[in-house]
């Protein structure tokens, strides 16, 4: 039953299971199909890519997000689910590229100059990919000029900046300033995050949004995409 497959895809995302041999959040899941086998079945049953992504994968991640907010799921659980989505997207990507379905948008992410921390940025990246965005990850310790050049060349809708140190968070302001000087600021929405960063800091440097964790960053990007952000 096609709808059953979608529900099973959603459940396999919640369980963070990629292959049938994987264990899940709950006991006794080994042997049941994982998200990759289910996505192949869904495609063989001619289910639309859009419903696999929106109802199955994104639907599953939405529930994971709720569980994370409620304190039922922790970062590793969320990562297991996001990896399941990522594995499913690897199967769907070639068909997606051949179809007229567009991704939700492109986001460039980077950890600013002199900061080597990238786990938080990577978590945000994987969640954004799972939610249907195209993510271009520049890496860590990225020059302000290199970030501005990437924005000019890639023309993304969003720029996500990360910093873990009080000594490097000021580089975020440098990036925004240089984007303004180059006439690029109005073309993109800028989201900032990282341990020392706050909502107040984000506002003070002229960023469009702040994400305290991966799901909040995703929520801010989604809100900015739909124009519901205040």
């Amino acid at each position: 039953m096609p709808e059953d497959i979608i529900s099973l895809i959603q459940e396999s995302v919640i369980q963070g299971r990629i292959y049938k041999d994987d264990e899940g959040m709950d006991e006794g899941m080994v042997g049941q199909p994982g998200v990759t086998e289910l996505v192949e079945s869904a495609l063989a049953s001619d289910l639309s890519i859009q419903s696999i992504i929106t109802k199955g994968l994104s639907g599953g991640m939405n529930i994971v997000g709720q569980k994370f907010e409620a304190g039922e799921y922790f970062i590793p659980d969320m990562l297991a689910s996001a990896e399941a989505v990522s594995a499913a997207m690897d199967i769907l990507q070639p068909r997606l590229a051949a179809s007229d379905i567009k991704t939700k948008g492109t986001i460039i992410v980077a950890t600013v100059k002199d900061d080597l921390h990238d786990i938080g940025k990577n978590i945000v990246s994987i969640l954004l990919r799972g939610a249907g965005y195209t993510v271009k990850d520049l890496g860590n310790n990225i020059d302000t000029q290199a970030i501005v050049d990437a924005v000019r060349e890639e023309k993304p809708q969003f720029l996500g900046l990360s910093a873990l140190l009080t000594s490097t968070m000021a580089r975020m302001a440098d990036v925004i300033q240089m984007l303004e000087q180059n006439g690029l600021r109005d073309q993109i929405k800028i989201i900032v995050g990282g341990a020392p960063v706050s909502e107040e800091f984000a506002k003070s440097i002229g960023a469009d949004g702040y994400g305290a964790d991966g799901f909040q960053a995703l929520a801010v990007v989604e809100a900015l995409t739909s124009g519901t952000e205040n």
Binding site: G16, R17, D22, E23, G24, M25, D26, E27, G71, E72, F74, I75, P76, D77, A80
Partner: peptide
């Protein structure tokens, strides 16, 4: 370090 608070059990997958 990876974020568990000690009061909740973790999945078999992550534990292994």
């Amino acid at each position: 370090y990876i974020g568990y608070d000690g009061n909740h059990g973790m999945s078999a997958r992550i534990s292994s």
